[in-house]
């Protein structure tokens, strides 16, 4: 080599920096759509998901969920859902309703072909399946930043802005209920904010069923606003709130409510039914259960 050591090191570092920068440049995978994706694309994607049969859940009997066993748990509210497998016919309207309510993004074609959708509700066999909001959630235990945490009223909440994308929670969910935003859906023109109440998620964060947290929040805030200072207050029980999937089901197979409220449709309609949960979740105190048959 003709150059001396100093020049060699200089040229090497220059090449190294250029290599790093070159690697960092944007390689457009799909050009930005410009227009927002149409409603039809969302509907078609749900149809595609329904056509790709996923393994059925292995269900075992569980007792009726009671109060949460975490410190500071509310004694009045524990929100959950029961999915009636006797009524459900696997039509998938719940999936579309959830996607539109929560601004769930589309996925690129190669992911769709492999069955990797961002839908919060998956059809497993013929049963709609979503995060069970376990009282003893394995995902919350391992989240390093605390983005996955439990509310006192029973929701397994996901705080997108606190998520650093380590995907430990996703690895630890025994039933793979969590979805990771591998793509920047907004940049790729795959996301649309149908519902302004729910924020769009950034690339690199996990998401999952939130039991329509935004609806519960709005209801609670409205309730608390109408209280008069000093008057004896009824506590908020979340009566009258329905999740998007429960609203959309034509057979009323999804029942949302409050396990600790005797007046809640959830308690009333699960009274004489046998409750089931996926085998992997049975010991984790799930709030979202299945029901089949009568007691």
């Amino acid at each position: 080599m003709g150059m001396d050591r100093r020049e060699f090191i200089k040229s090497c570092s220059l090449v190294a920096v250029m290599g790093l920068l070159f690697g960092c440049r944007k390689i457009p995978l799909e050009e930005l759509a410009g227009d927002l994706p149409s409603l039809k694309r969302f509907e078609d994607e749900v149809k595609l998901a329904l056509s790709q049969a996923k393994k059925s859940l292995d269900l075992v009997k569980i007792p009726t969920p009671g109060a949460l066993k975490i410190p500071g748990a509310s004694t009045l509210n524990r929100f959950g859902m029961a999915i009636d497998l006797d009524s459900c016919d696997g039509c998938g309207k719940c999936i579309l309703a959830c996607n539109l309510e929560n601004n769930v993004p589309l996925v690129p074609n190669e992911d769709a072909a492999r069955g990797r959708f961002m839908h919060w509700v998956d059809m497993r066999g013929s049963a709609p399946f979503m995060c069970a909001h376990c009282g003893n959630a394995p995902c919350e235990r391992v989240c390093p930043t605390g983005a996955a945490n439990h509310t006192p009223d029973g929701l397994s909440a996901m705080m997108y802005k606190r998520c650093t994308g380590s995907r430990f929670c996703g690895a630890n969910c025994p039933v793979q209920a969590r979805k990771f935003n591998f793509n920047d859906a907004q940049k790729l023109g795959l996301a649309r904010q149908f519902n302004r109440e729910v924020p769009l998620r950034d690339k690199g964060v996990m998401e999952k069923c939130s039991l329509c947290l935004h609806r519960l929040q709005n209801d609670r805030l409205k309730f608390k606003t109408s209280l008069t200072v000093g008057e004896t207050a009824e506590e908020w029980r979340g009566r009258g709130v329905k999740t998007a999937c429960a609203e959309a089901c034509p057979k009323n197979a999804i029942i949302f409510g409050n396990w600790l409220d005797e007046k809640s449709p959830l308690v009333k309609l699960t009274k004489n039914r046998v409750l089931y949960a996926p085998r992997e979740l049975a010991d984790l105190d799930p709030s979202v259960v299945f029901m089949r048959g009568r007691r």
């Binding site: 945490n149 509310t151 006192p152 909440a157 705080m159």
Partner: peptide, 10 residues
């Protein structure tokens, strides 16, 4: 007042 994350965040 509520101090858990989901009380004030979405």
């Amino acid at each position: 007042a509520a101090t858990y994350c989901a009380a004030c965040h979405r």
